[in-house]
Nucleic acid binder design. Structure first.
Lengths: 351, 351
DNA sequence: CCCCGATACACAAACGTTTGTGCCAACACT
DNA sequence: AGTGTTGGCACAAACGTTTGTGTATCGGGG
């Protein structure tokens, strides 16, 4: 009875640096340095190591490296949600730029809940990420959960939805320019009484969009009217509700600029159900350039947010922070320029 | 001159188990076991450890644990894309179930490219994930890049888009039942010549949906017609193109079942631009229950895919595989039942 | 001939956990 | 009193890297 070896159903023992070292009769130091192209290793040795590594299909254990070096090649991202167009596109930009720099990306959703946002940040720290990239939940008004990130000396970058009046690094769209462009466009199309469907004012983006709206009115010498500004959470239903409210005003409106596309979609549906023509009676313009803006009838004019550029910019900022740690103490803000996509919902109002 | 201590601008030295041990005058073993609720540690000691850990704000280094234990608490997900509704929702389900089980989730997009898919798998293995969850890219016809995953003994679960004729664990929707339900519904509404906008046949989901279509026809004693089945990549433009082609047939059609919502959206737009009424002249039904199905006019009937349930099921399957490694050698397939959402695009065709 | 600086590599100590094994005391049982 | 059992803890070796320091050999400049 030949003592047959037990089947290696156990862990297939991934090949480690130690194996390479034994095989080549050199020390692990040499292996490590050869693989990371250290200058103190001869070209010939490097070649031998590389060759053997390929032959044995050596896979570096990044965990061990991360443990030893105290930092991983993982990037953590926290976003409110990943439905719609904006965040997926930004994430796409982040992934692309990150992978170029040799980083992988973890994505977490806060679902607009600061509680979950807190947990997400914890999760990411647990995963020993090298950086944390955040777009805030709607109800985040307090930012202590990010202190831990800074305390660990990990770069922290906010994008799009950033903390108000905090000393942070961030990438944002010039929302004010976007709001201005959209409103200005409506004005140029002949609108004179333009309503604004505004978002929660503690979020920078909605404040800025509204400011753009106000500036555009001012630029055309039009006095803003309080009754024309409707605040809400920007859902589709909110948009319909707002329209019902606006239609009850004595002086009819002739245009609406919404700080989001969903709210404008709701407005459009409410208008159509009342038999009001868009854009002939009331012109519409939204914000975000969501996919469905090209589906509705008429198609919706909207402000595009340069999503992928934003993702790339976020990663660039992260890389700067991580290579120059002293830069932690200066505040950086990158501002991207939006672009207005003009479609039928706002065209040919006059003539 | 008091010799003031140098500012600790250096690494804030995160508190480790060693610190706890020193503070409490016990060994690290005790700390580790107390924290993981090991039975050989006294209740009193556990309390002391837990209390101190909280007080010092001890954060476990999961990297070290993963290194030691040879497995992390990270789950890798590869999907073709994260736009639209389906994948975000599935991911949502995955995240939820995973976080309950103490896992975090990394998401990668293959962008429908098998090359990138390969790289994604590599990335995930580098990140030392505990499991790999995949929905295939459109052009993935060969599966060797997944061998490495199995070789490392890491659970591998496919969902929705799964390899044809491979020995794998998977979670899928009963696409055939979905195709049947949609087509059957059109038939019940009075349609008799129903076209099918089919997808790439090497993808299981599209084959199944088509089979459901054929079965429904057969169940009503209707002979399928080759000319009524149009194959494409299922984009919006493909849908419009297909309609143009179908309208040139001598015998007019009275219904269309599309294997996706985008392709049906294109069809709807093409029909409307030709002045053909939906659903009076031609009824429509799609697949996926995308968000925009409730926006179009008329709203689109569509098959819902139980996205979140799928995500949960995927994680459940992963957990089974990882706790019972011998189960690696049996094939498991979970099948979810779809649900038909009936809207105006298919209603009241007759009478 | 001596010293200096490269060049090329090895030693060994980290990084922060987990875990098999060993030790000791206390207790219960025959 | 001797034997077995159990509870409670410590020792030390892993896991797979990275890296500061040490130490040869060699060539060339003084």
């Amino acid at each position: 009875m030949t003592p047959r070896k037990k089947q290696p159903t156990t862990t297939p023992h991934t090949v480690s640096m130690a194996d390479l070292a034994r095989e080549l009769g050199v020390s692990m130091t040499t292996i490590s340095r050869a693989l990371s192209d250290h200058h103190s290793i001869g070209a010939a040795t490097k070649q031998r190591v590389l060759k053997l590594a390929k032959k044995l299909n050596y896979q570096p254990n990044h965990l061990a490296a991360a443990l030893r070096k105290g930092q991983s090649r993982l990037l953590g991202v926290v976003v409110p949600y990943i439905e719609g167009k904006f965040f997926p596109s930004v994430i796409q930009g982040i992934e692309q730029a990150a992978s170029k720099a040799g980083f992988s990306v973890i994505v977490c959703q806060s679902h607009e809940d600061v509680q979950i946002e807190r947990r997400n940040v914890e999760t990411l720290l647990h995963a020993q990420v090298a950086g944390v990239l955040v777009s805030l939940a709607r109800n985040t008004q307090e930012f202590h959960h990010f202190d831990k990130v800074r305390a660990r000396g990990i770069p922290l970058v906010f994008f799009d939805r950033i903390p108000a009046s905090e000393f942070v690094n961030s990438v944002v769209l010039n929302d004010q320019a976007g709001g201005f462009a959209a409103t200005n466009h409506l004005l140029e199309q002949g609108c004179r009484r333009i309503a604004h469907l505004a978002g929660p004012q503690h979020l920078n983006i909605y404040r800025e969009r509204q400011q753009g709206y106000l500036n555009a009115l001012a630029a055309h010498g039009i006095e803003p009217q309080e009754e024309l500004i409707i605040y809400s959470d920007m859902t589709q239903e909110d948009g319909a509700q707002a329209i019902r409210q606006l239609l009850m005003l004595p002086n009819p409106i002739d245009g609406v600029f919404g700080a989001g596309d969903s709210v404008i979609l709701g407005a459009l549906q409410a208008l159509k159900s009342q038999g009001i023509r868009v854009p002939q009676d009331i012109a519409l313009a939204g914000f975000s350039n969501e996919g469905f803006t090209a589906i509705t009838e008429p198609r919706l004019t909207s402000v595009d947010q340069r999503c992928e550029e934003m993702g790339e910019a976020v990663v660039r900022l992260f890389l700067e922070l991580s290579t120059a740690p002293e830069a932690q103490f200066v505040q950086r803000q990158v501002v991207l320029q939006p672009e207005l996509f003009i479609r039928e919902s706002s065209l040919q109002v006059t003539e």
